[in-house]
């Protein structure tokens, strides 16, 4: 493991994702990627009494399914890294309460999926853990009630609003060779472009995503053509156009290799405004769909850039602008890795 450039970690001595799993709610299961998810719930309550308990169950199911796929018991995992959107990272802390694994709780809003994966890979590469488990979750109703309004309140939302994905994803990172190799990670800076509308987070996060992607290219001397897919977390219809424009202004044309998880998870006719968002958006698309397609040979190298709007209700009410962050991880199909220009 070494640092290359200013913000990029390169894992050149073998760090692997050994297994990954995704659990989702009804709308996600009904979406175009429904068949890629391990656990699909038909009801937003997921068989629990409250939405918060439902979110907790989703994360627990993703964790259990991931460990089961890897054939590893919880006792054999050295470190658990997780985060979510609820105050005090409630979902993660309560899931960690049930696991016999030392726990680091992380918050990066919707960038948490790649934040936890990058941290897990670094800790494994550094020899501080043989196996580290990274997980994140979000739930449409818990996020709505915490960040926006009561779920049944009649408010006309603008087209720029996004729809929080209900789901959870987990990945087990380790030294033993697996089907996916974590090749590099770029840790983002907090970027605040000055926008204040919490119902347009795509535009607020796009500059952070562009910053991390550009920094990644500069650090590695890489270009968009070195990747089969560069995918952002939840910029949605609005932000995904902006990030392409920002990158084009810097001389990087990503048009042919770019997509956004928030646009992939729902069908165009599902009523989700500008697209999906939330921690689970990038997590379930990556750990469900993208990894399976890597294993299948559709892609050889991905750059997953999870984007987070570091939104605080109090700060928004005090008319403060919305800071944003993006963390990116390069994941490759093990055994078929292209050469990364280093």
């Amino acid at each position: 493991m070494k640092r290359v450039g200013k913000q990029t970690w390169v894992f050149d001595d073998g760090v692997y994702i050994q297994a990954a799993a995704a659990a989702v709610g009804p709308l996600e299961a009904d979406g175009p990627l429904g068949s890629y998810f391990d656990v699909c719930h038909r009801d937003l309550y997921c068989g629990e009494a409250t939405w918060e308990l439902a979110e907790r169950r989703l994360m627990r199911e993703a964790v259990d399914c991931c460990l089961q796929k890897a054939g590893v018991s919880a006792e054999e995992v050295d470190l658990f890294l997780a985060g979510d959107l609820l105050n005090q990272n409630a979902t993660s802390n309560y899931v960690a309460r049930e696991l016999p694994i030392p726990f680091l709780c992380l918050f990066g809003a919707c960038s948490t999926s790649m934040q936890t994966l990058a941290a897990a890979a670094a800790l494994v590469a550094g020899g501080l853990a043989d196996r580290a488990l990274a997980a994140t979750s979000s739930h449409n109703a818990t996020a709505e009630r915490q960040f926006r309004y009561p779920t049944e309140l009649g408010v006309q939302k603008p087209k720029t609003a996004t729809f929080t994905v209900t789901g959870a994803g987990a990945a087990l990172v380790g030294r033993a060779p697996g089907r996916w190799r974590v090749r590099a990670a770029t840790i983002g800076k907090v970027v605040d472009a000055g926008l204040k509308n919490p119902l347009d987070m795509g535009a607020a996060m796009a500059p952070a995503a562009a910053d991390t992607i550009e920094q990644h290219f500069r650090d590695l001397g890489a270009s968009p053509g070195d990747y089969d897919l560069i995918v952002t977390g939840d910029l949605s219809r609005v932000g995904s156009v902006i990030v392409r424009e920002l990158l084009a202004e810097s001389g990087y044309d990503v048009t042919d290799v770019y997509n956004d998880c928030g646009l992939m998870i729902y069908r165009p006719d599902q009523k989700v405004f500008a697209g999906g968002s939330g921690c689970a958006c990038s997590a379930v698309v990556t750990y469900g769909y993208l990894l399976q397609e890597l294993a299948r040979g559709t892609f050889r190298r991905l750059f997953v850039v999870a984007t987070g709007a570091l939104l605080s209700q109090t700060m928004v009410q005090q008319k403060q602008s919305i800071p944003a962050i993006a963390h990116g991880v390069v994941i490759e199909a093990a055994g078929r890795e292209p050469d990364l220009p280093l």
Binding site: P158, T160, D200, A203, I242, L246
Partner: peptide, 19 residues
Amino acid sequence: MGLKSDYVREVKAFQPSPP
């Protein structure tokens, strides 16, 4: 004029206006 020079103003072109 690029997006980066004055983001808050220039980004409006990318935000769909309400009908």
